[in-house]
């Protein structure tokens, strides 16, 4: 650091002279254009990749949603235009109402659970105590292991007959006999939400803890002098100061939860009887199990639309964060 500050002055002065035009570098506008071109080249690989793997899928999905794109298409290469038929079919089916409601419940339940527990733990870890750093970093584990591995172990923990949860609850005489967590139409969604909360807690703790670290200690000390501690200091200092971070966490959480697929497929596959089917899993089922790609992409587009609404919130929240 010190070496850079000592060498800073001379180059800056020389850089200024470069900016005003070197005598033998050609006309300034042409040189500037070449400079622009060089700078653009650094962005080309990323731009191409983003266009191919995000831009193209969105456009292709939009086109497919207006086509009869099914098994036959892969043999004949023909996908006749059908207008809004796919949307009509998808929106008119009884599964859509269930899936939309499940998506709302899954998202709301997951976000509330993750956020409340995550904020509680973040506030808890703000108190410096022995091993707090180690414990906090170990807490990241559920977030880092593959979702499908978490899904596998949870599937067994929640197993009706031999699952650890039922063994535990039965030992405490809290439930009479095996609770069918994943195989009951009333409980499947609850179980899936519970597991998703578990997965989301580390993310919430990490971001919220980072936000808490940015609140200066002096504020708490001053408030303590005025007699504000505990809950009062939380509501008067922590919460207002944390609001920008809270906004980002919540909106990002919603956007990420809307598209969750892995954990539901691993635990219930959307069942039993669509009890845990969401828009994302139903879109997967239409495309990749029934090979009705047209309808699958129509449903996918509806999901994109919902995400975009929240994206607007996100952009507003993050722009406020960037400007601060």
């Amino acid at each position: 650091m010190t070496t850079t500050t000592t060498t800073t002055r001379a180059p800056v002065r020389r850089a200024a002279s470069v900016g005003s035009g070197r005598p033998h570098g050609g006309p300034p506008s042409a040189r500037r254009r070449r400079e622009r071109l060089y700078q653009w080249l650094f962005l080309v690989p990323a731009s191409v990749y983003l266009v191919l793997f995000f831009g193209y899928p969105v456009v292709k999905n939009l086109i497919m949603s207006f086509q009869d794109y099914g098994t036959a298409t892969f043999y004949t290469g023909e996908a006749p235009w059908v207008g809004f038929d796919n949307y009509a079919k998808v929106l008119g089916s009884t599964i859509f109402t269930t899936a939309a409601l499940n998506t709302a419940l899954f998202t709301a339940g997951s976000i509330v659970g993750q956020f409340v527990i995550g904020l509680g733990l973040a506030v808890f870890f703000r108190k410096k105590f022995p091993l707090s750093g180690v414990l906090r970093s170990l807490l990241l584990l559920p977030w880092l292991i593959p979702l499908i591995a978490s899904g596998a172990v949870w599937k067994w923990i929640l197993d009706k007959d031999s699952g650890a949860l039922n063994q535990f609850l039965e030992a405490l005489h809290l439930v009479p006999n095996g609770v069918p967590w994943l195989t009951s139409t009333q409980l499947a969604l609850v179980a899936v939400v519970g597991v998703n909360v578990w997965i989301g807690i580390p993310f919430n703790v990490t971001i919220l803890y980072g936000g808490l670290q940015d609140i200066p200690d002096e504020l708490y000390e001053a408030a303590a002098l005025d007699g504000a501690t505990g809950w009062r200091s939380f509501w008067n200092i922590t919460w207002p100061m944390l609001r920008p971070v809270v906004n980002v966490v919540l909106v990002l959480g919603v956007v990420y939860t809307l598209k969750v697929l892995d954990i539901i497929l691993a635990l219930t596959g959307g069942g039993p009887a669509n009890a845990s089917q969401t828009i994302a899993t139903e879109s997967y089922a239409l495309s990749f199990e029934q090979f009705r790609f047209g309808e699958g992409s129509a449903l996918g587009n509806i999901l994109v639309l919902i995400s975009l609404v929240f994206a607007l919130f996100y952009l507003r929240a993050s722009r406020r964060g960037v400007e601060d």
Partner: peptide
């Protein structure tokens, strides 16, 4: 450069696109 904001915006938007939408289109391609 003028394009930088567009690229940043594209990155933010890319986070909103569900994987299943990408998979849908990539499978056919």
């Amino acid at each position: 450069v003028r394009g930088t904001n567009i690229v940043l915006f594209a990155i933010l938007i890319s986070q909103m696109i569900p994987g299943i939408v990408v998979a849908n289109a990539l499978y056919t391609a």
